[in-house]
């Protein structure tokens, strides 16, 4: 449980709402303790992922912008 899997989701080049769809797809198959890292280029992803975190209660480990992408690192903690 403490050491989960790390899942990387590359949603670059996919327009809104693609990146959040890709996150939900990964989340559906994830377990508590897993870490999901999403790469996106769509600027709409940032507010979407924040809203998703506050609604679902999972943990946003990191949300940062690099030159060519937005990276969100999420620890799955709220699956029932």
């Amino acid at each position: 449980m403490s050491q989960g899997n790390r899942i990387t989701v590359d949603a670059r080049g996919i327009a809104c709402p693609g990146p959040i769809t890709e996150l939900i797809k990964a989340y559906r198959n994830a377990k508590n303790g897993d870490v999901i890292e999403v790469w996106a280029t769509d600027p709409g992803f940032e507010p979407d992922v924040k809203a998703w975190i506050s609604r679902t209660g999972n943990q946003l480990v990191e949300l940062r912008k690099e030159q060519d992408k937005i990276i969100a690192v999420i620890k799955v903690t709220a699956k029932r």
């Binding site: 327009a15 809104c16 709402p17 959040i20 769809t21 939900i24 709409g44 979407d48 809203a51 998703w52 609604r55």
Partner: peptide, 10 residues
Amino acid sequence: TSYPRPYPAE
């Protein structure tokens, strides 16, 4: 819906 809003595209 699993999306953040009723219609996915803002």
